[in-house]
């Protein structure tokens, strides 16, 4: 599902999740703190290079994944950029509505662009983690970081059940669709409601059966698993420093060029 499929195919899959988490966290924080167009774009490209060169992901897939959050970003940024201003304001492009001007000012465009680029950079950082680390590895890492055991266990169980339930939901959806269940609004709502409640019911009963199965195998309240044998991935540490240094360098250069 989503990024997970590619995470399992990544060449960094066997590398311990810790250095990957560190790289993501450091570049993410630096990118967010610098708050500049150049650093955002640099981070985006840099993470693309890391994901494709180290992880072995095809660039096309990376670009495809970048498209997904664009909708969320566009809505956020357009509302920042566009606005109504009193007549006489200096505008880049505007349309008069009543006695006010609707459109973009240079300042607004600059602000929107900066937020957009910064957000793209941070999305690149997040993808480095998501496209190279399967969730199961991540939960192991969280446990090492002393996140409460119960929370981690819930995460592991939820992660597993997501796939079970979405398969159920997809099957029901196909069955309904093939019987013209999604023709028109009324029927769609009733079909979807039926689907949601049936998925809930099945989830509930399945949970019951899983618990019975677990108990008959000596379940005492926690699911203990062994950690995988990871490669330590020391090589990622200097890379983290390098990436952060690159971001800072870009930041300084941009600060010099744009007074």
């Amino acid at each position: 599902m989503g990024t997970d499929r590619y995470a399992y195919q990544s060449r960094l899959r066997r590398v311990s999740p810790m250095p990957k988490l560190l790289l993501t966290a450091v570049t993410l924080v630096v990118c967010l703190c610098c708050d500049s167009v150049a650093v955002g774009l640099f981070t985006l490209v840099g993470m693309g290079v890391l994901v494709t060169a180290l992880g072995g992901l095809s660039p096309r897939v990376y670009l495809h994944f970048l498209k997904i959050p664009l909708v969320f970003l566009a809505v956020g940024c357009i509302t920042i950029v566009a606005g109504s201003y009193p007549a006489g304001t200096e505008m880049v492009a505007a349309l008069p509505v009543g006695d006010r001007l609707w459109g973009f000012t240079a300042g607004g465009l600059w602000l929107g662009g900066r937020i957009f680029c910064k957000a793209l950079g941070t999305i690149g950082c997040m993808y480095f983690l998501a496209l190279n680390t399967p969730v199961t590895d991540l939960t192991m890492a969280l446990e090492k970081l002393h996140v409460p055991r119960l929370l981690v266990e819930l995460m592991e169980l939820i992660y597993r059940f997501i796939f079970v339930l979405s398969e159920t939901a997809a099957n029901i959806r196909t069955a309904q669709d093939s019987r013209l269940g999604y023709q028109g609004f009324r029927r769609s709502v009733s079909s979807l409601g039926m689907l949601a409640s049936m998925v809930f019911l099945r989830a509930w009963r399945k949970a019951d059966r899983i618990y019975t199965a677990l108990e008959s195998r000596g379940y005492t309240g926690s699911l203990a698993t062994l950690t995988d044998a990871y490669r330590p991935g020391w090589g990622l540490l200097p890379l983290t420093a390098l990436a952060a240094a690159g971001q800072m360098a870009v930041w300084f250069v941009e600060g010099r060029l744009l007074p």
């Binding site: 119960l150 266990e153 819930l154 169980l157 939820i158 597993r160 059940f161 997501i162 079970v164 339930l165 998925v199 809930f200 989830a203 509930w204 399945k206 949970a207 019951d208 899983i210 618990y211 677990l214 309240g221």
Partner: peptide
């Protein structure tokens, strides 16, 4: 309840 809650989260 743990299994049930996890199912609810997945739901």
């Amino acid at each position: 309840a743990k299994i049930l809650l996890a199912m609810c989260g997945a739901f």
